[in-house]
Amino acid sequence: MRANKNLCQLTVGQEAVIVSIEGGHGFRNRILSMGLHPGDRVKVVRASPFRGPLLIENLDQGFCLALGRGMAAKVLVEIPEEGVGE
């Protein structure tokens, strides 16, 4: 079973694969150039308090980005099969 979610809906520590990036031309461009692409495996490492940003690790390339929640909600992901139901 596969679930379609956005980065914001993941729990801390959960891994997922990016499916697509919503939002406008400029926003997509920035996310892509900072190294998040469809097909990349990512993990939510931690969440900042006060509805602050999420710390996203790109597992394929090994770097971390702090991403505001509004932006994270525009990054759609799917959870690999073995990850569901944990």
Binding site: S48, P49, F50, R51, G52, P53, L55, A66, G68
Partner: peptide, 19 residues
Amino acid sequence: LPRAAFLLDGLMHRMGLHG
């Protein structure tokens, strides 16, 4: 510094700014 920015971003938004 970027880590401080990560921690303070949520609070800064209440001030109308970001991290």
